[in-house]
Amino acid sequence: MSNNNHRRFENAVPIATFATWALIGIFGCGAGLGYVWCKNQLYVTGMEIKKLEVELAQTQRKNEVARVNIAKNSSTLKLKERVASGMTGLVAIPPNRPDRPDRLVIVSGTPEVPGSTGHNDLRPVSNQKLRE
């Protein structure tokens, strides 16, 4: 009886110790994996940052090129050339299509046209949307 008990104690599994080491192992593995994951994220984020930086630089360059083209096309010299060639960019209203309302509409804030007779008067400002 006593022998059995003695063997039982001799062969007892040190669960607490195993558990401790297992925990330490798991923690170690977790820390290691975490480190690897973090490191990987660092690289992934770095690559994303780089990609965004490249895109930003490309956009900035496109912006600069666009700005130069705007400067060229809105320069005094260009305007002079357009005026000389008759192409100012303004679209002439054809004589057969004046903006004539059916009846006089007084837009709030617009002074009444002196001498207006009422119906079918031309408004002082053309091409302005009418507000009933």
Partner: peptide, 19 residues
């Protein structure tokens, strides 16, 4: 680094860098 622009008094571009 971009070289600065030269503008007239109203801001019209007279000289500018093109990348």
């Amino acid at each position: 680094a971009r070289r600065g622009m030269i503008e007239d008094v109203h801001g019209e571009t007279l000289a500018e860098d093109e990348p």
